[in-house]
Amino acid sequence: MLNINGHAYMGPGLGLTSAGTPAKTQFSLMHIHRAVDVLADDVIEDPNGQFAEHTRRFNITDAQYEFVLTPRGLAVYEKESQTAFVLPRVRDGSEQASVLEALHETVLPEWAFASLKEPDTLS
């Protein structure tokens, strides 16, 4: 932020952090960290959630998860069962995105996903 003659001005990147990166980039990173925490705590660790049900159904005792790109978008992939759980996208007309919808949009925006011409290269 810059102060000139008593007026505050901020650059298009919302200013710079002490590391020299745009504050907007730092905010996006904080949103991603928060969404991943929610995913880990509220979704994967939920004993009644779809991930726990999936591990019980396949008798998986030590599930290993990672993010992957699929032809349908960003997904959480469970290695042992080779199952991808595609994250939800923001729905048209939705007033506020869920944490997982926001994660999908931040990591893989619709415009970037649409620009991938060959879906079979997302393996």
Rank of each mutant, 00 (worst) to 15 (best):
G6W: 06
A8Q: 14
Y9K: 03
Y9C: 00
M10C: 14
M10V: 15
G11C: 10
P12K: 14
G13W: 05
G13R: 06
G13T: 09
L14S: 09
L14F: 12
G15H: 04
L16S: 11
L16G: 00
L16Q: 11
T17E: 07
T17R: 00
T17P: 06
S18T: 15
G20I: 09
G20D: 10
T21S: 10
A23Q: 10
A23S: 07
K24R: 13
T25I: 10
F27V: 15
F27S: 09
F27P: 00
S28M: 13
L29T: 07
M30P: 00
M30H: 13
H31V: 08
I32W: 02
I32C: 08
I32F: 01
H33L: 13
R34C: 08
A35T: 01
A35C: 06
A35G: 06
V36Y: 01
V36A: 01
L39R: 09
L39M: 11
D42M: 11
V43M: 07
V43L: 07
I44S: 04
I44E: 05
N48Y: 13
F51M: 11
A52R: 09
E53D: 11
E53L: 12
H54Y: 04
T55F: 07
R56Y: 01
R56K: 14
R57C: 04
I60Q: 02
I60V: 15
T61D: 12
D62W: 10
D62A: 13
A63F: 05
A63H: 07
Y65N: 02
Y65F: 15
E66M: 06
V68Q: 03
T70I: 06
P71R: 08
R72A: 12
R72K: 15
L74R: 03
L74S: 00
A75Y: 02
A75N: 03
E78D: 10
K79V: 15
K79M: 11
T83Q: 07
T83N: 05
F85V: 07
F85D: 02
L87P: 01
P88T: 02
R89N: 06
V90K: 14
V90R: 14
V90S: 06
V90E: 09
R91W: 01
R91A: 10
G93P: 04
G93N: 11
S94C: 08
S94G: 09
E95F: 12
E95G: 15
E95M: 13
A97M: 14
A97K: 04
V99W: 05
V99S: 06
